[in-house]
């Protein structure tokens, strides 16, 4: 039993997309441009050459927020979407009927139709490929060149993520919706 979450030192992100590459290989995601569990959000820069705003060019690495109060879970008519014992929002491919309610319900645009598993899929914190084998990292965290991600257990006060969140300021995306997301963007 754990409550897994991720803190992101997102200002270190250089938009290299190693995380996306590692995720695809780790999880056997179809190599198609519309298939991805994680991504780096990029805003088009503000200003006119040569007067551009450096601050406007931020990179937001993102993926499923593993909300404690996940709208996608609430709307799922077949209970295909569920919380596992570690608080990770998971999908049971046997029960998914591709109704896509979850895609519409998710405020983070985290879900997509996966043509391999025939599931409305998304990030599962590498629960089946890594956590099930006793590993304590996700593929995206392990590979990141600038070490943006800290993955760990919020219920363990000594875990690095708990320590970091107790010391540093952070923000959560669309927290006002009451979703209780478990991705923490360090400021």
């Amino acid at each position: 039993m754990a409550r897994f979450a991720m803190a992101l030192d997102y200002k270190n992100c250089i938009n290299c997309r190693a995380c996306e590459s590692a995720c695809k290989q780790e999880n056997g995601i179809l190599l198609d441009k519309d298939h991805y569990r994680i991504w780096v959000g990029v805003k088009e820069i503000e200003g006119e050459f040569p007067n551009l705003s450096i601050a406007s060019q931020a990179y937001y690495p993102s993926q499923c927020q593993h909300c404690d109060n996940a709208p996608c879970q609430q709307v799922c008519p077949t209970n295909a979407t569920y919380y596992d014992q570690n608080g990770v929002v998971r999908i049971n491919p046997e029960q998914c009927i591709l109704c896509t309610y979850c895609i519409n319900a998710c405020p983070y645009d985290a879900r997509y139709v996966d043509n391999r598993t025939i599931t409305v899929d998304k990030c599962n914190f590498c629960a089946d490929t890594r956590l099930a084998n006793g590993e304590t990292t996700t593929a995206c965290q392990a590979t990141c060149p600038t070490k943006v991600r800290i993955f760990g257990d919020l219920d363990d006060p000594n875990s690095e993520i708990s320590q970091v969140l107790s010391k540093r300021e952070y923000k959560q995306i669309k927290a006002g919706l009451g979703t209780k997301p478990k991705l923490f963007y360090l400021i």
């Binding site: 997309r17 190693a18 590459s21 695809k24 593929a139 392990a142 590979t143 070490k147």
Partner: peptide, 20 residues
């Protein structure tokens, strides 16, 4: 799968998108 090898000081426990 290819994972970063943490032992190498040059690559500092990472693999870039191409390495993956």
């Amino acid at each position: 799968k290819l994972d970063p090898n943490p032992y190498f000081p040059k690559s500092r426990n990472m693999l870039c998108p191409r390495g993956n």
